[in-house]
Design a protein around this nucleic acid. Structure first.
Lengths: 333, 333
DNA sequence: TTGTACGCGTTATCAA
DNA sequence: TTGATAACGCGTACAA
């Protein structure tokens, strides 16, 4: 019942506690035989070092925090699993800290998180990754952190990201290649830098094909399913409705599909819908696309890697997950 | 940039560190004036007590963990937010610990979690809430924990839950009241106790109405959207397809809807679909139901309350979220 | 009502 | 290559 401490292990192995500590921290200068004895004792006693004590004495807590506040539960979940996997492999604990933007005062939350838990580092996802007050405070405290998909001041700290404009342009280009000319767009929450980039990509692809953008075909959402549905209602009620709709994330694409189905618009015979982003909702479209890419989890992997093994290239652009999702078909003639 | 400690606060307030500690822990016997001075100093210095030190010295870490491994990101997200809210109000930090069942050895994970982090308690969600090895180990270590929706041995520890059988029966009864006689059912993952209860409710309601259950109308899924879609494929291809389908959770209901739409089956004119569970995917059905209930977050609230303020009724049955979701309409004649 | 001395379990420093 | 000892920041027991 009582906690097993380092001294217990030391006694069991017949060495001093400092030696046990050396083995635990993989320091140099430990005799092979000694090391084996210690490791055996650790395993036999099921010894687990106390993070509290390690943090107090050593200044390292062996924990990092994943701070996220995102509209998509799928995104959060994949990110959590991705970061967690890499942390586990590195012997570090990830503590997930979900927030809701409504709760305001994110800086206070971060200050308290750092002050109380002593985490060794942070992974920040949008929109917190772009909160300059948070960034400044962390820099001041010299707390290591990695930004996921940074928008403002992207070179400011280590980060992982994809080229959102290029990826969005690719999706639109694909639709244009299928013969679509009237392509609707449902943009994301402006609070997320990715939204603007995806819009830019949409416009760039249209421009490339000499298609003039039309204001009535462009809507702004907030990444929620309901927003996708609302945009689709408006788009499909147009006198000249689009033959294809691109949504800035998969959840909004699902919302578009829902409305299309309800209104009896066949997809893709009369409409093509392309989502963008996580694999999450991909299964909702038809046929369900089984992609090998897991963009969000991948971002989590890389973010954790960057935090745990710094020194490598600090700004990683991941290959864009340029998967065209949804029931994309040729434009009706 | 050095850490602000209790002694700094003590100096600033002109008292001893013990007095500061008293104020922090809201102990009795502190002069009003003293308390005010200390609190002022705490605020001015932005002092944050170190969890590590508190855990070491006092045995309390002021942290609890939410351990979940669930197929639905929506569920996890709502649960995390619910538990987090209550913890924040109580001055306790929630550290979310998502797992994937594939990773096996959940007992090891829990042992390590407790051993290293010293969390003061655990919230366990299904299926971990029913892992008897984990339960036994926690009891042995006297670690407080709360089970969410326990299946096996439900009285074994404090828990929060709803009456799944009753709720499922209510949904089915509602459909029967609309004239439906052939009602399909897509069950959940057998690893989750709730699945069996929901099936039982379905059967009970049929029995009540003297409707004989048909094997071809009953499918088993795993709570995923794809499983709902697969079941719908089979059900709608039947010579005598059901006029209504009940899914054991909302994600599978969404899968059913997707397939129905794809096959040109109008909902609800020719088919009614009822999901069950989280609000999450409710918006996907039509018309979007705005319910005031948030069943999963509610479970999180209560679970946290139970853990943080024990002594109250240790086994809380929440009112069943008996909301019939989806496009339920009368049976076609 | 307030303060003093000790210990929690680990790492860091320095000596052996 | 190892071991003794002093921190780390806070709570607890006791004394004042």
């Amino acid at each position: 019942m009582a906690r097993v401490t380092i001294s217990d292990v030391a006694d069991a192995a017949g060495v001093s506690i400092k030696t046990v500590s050396r083995v635990l921290n993989r320091e140099r200068y430990v005799g092979a035989a000694t090391q084996a004895r210690v490791e055996a004792a650790v395993a036999r006693l099921r010894f687990r070092p106390s993070f509290a004590a390690r943090a107090l004495a050593g200044g390292r807590s062996h924990q990092i925090a994943l701070v996220c506040d995102n509209p998509s539960p799928y995104y959060i979940h994949q990110m959590q699993l991705g970061v967690r996997d890499r942390c586990a492999a590195a012997g570090v604990r990830m503590i997930a800290q979900p927030y809701d933007r409504a709760g305001a005062h994110i800086l206070d939350e971060v200050e308290e998180l750092i002050g109380t838990t002593h985490v060794d580092g942070l992974v920040l996802t949008p929109p917190i990754a772009d909160d300059v007050a948070v960034l400044a405070w962390l820099e001041g405290r010299q707390v290591p952190f990695v930004r996921v998909s940074p928008g403002v001041d992207p070179a400011r700290a280590p980060s992982v990201f994809i080229d959102n404009a290029r990826a969005a342009a690719g999706v639109v280009r694909h639709l244009i290649g299928l013969g679509h000319r009237r392509i609707g767009f449902v943009g994301g929450d402006p609070a997320f830098a990715a939204s603007a980039r995806r819009s830019a990509g949409y416009l760039a692809a249209l421009d490339e094909a000499k298609i003039a953008p039309e204001a009535t075909l462009i809507h702004t959402g907030d990444f929620s399913l309901a927003a996708g549905a609302a945009a689709a209602e408006a788009l499909l009620a147009l006198p000249a409705p689009p033959t294809a709709i691109v949504a800035a994330n998969d959840e909004m694409a699902a919302g578009v599909l829902t409305v299309a189905h309800r209104r009896g618009v066949t997809v893709p015979a009369r409409l093509s819908v392309a989502g963008f982003g996580d694999d999450a909702v991909a299964a909702m479209v038809w046929p369900p696309l089984t992609t090998t890419r897991q963009p969000t989890r991948d971002l989590g992997y890389r973010a954790a890697d960057l935090l745990l093994a710094p020194g490598a290239d600090a700004h990683r652009e991941l290959a864009s997950p340029l998967v065209v999702r949804g029931s994309t078909g040729p434009a009706p003639s």
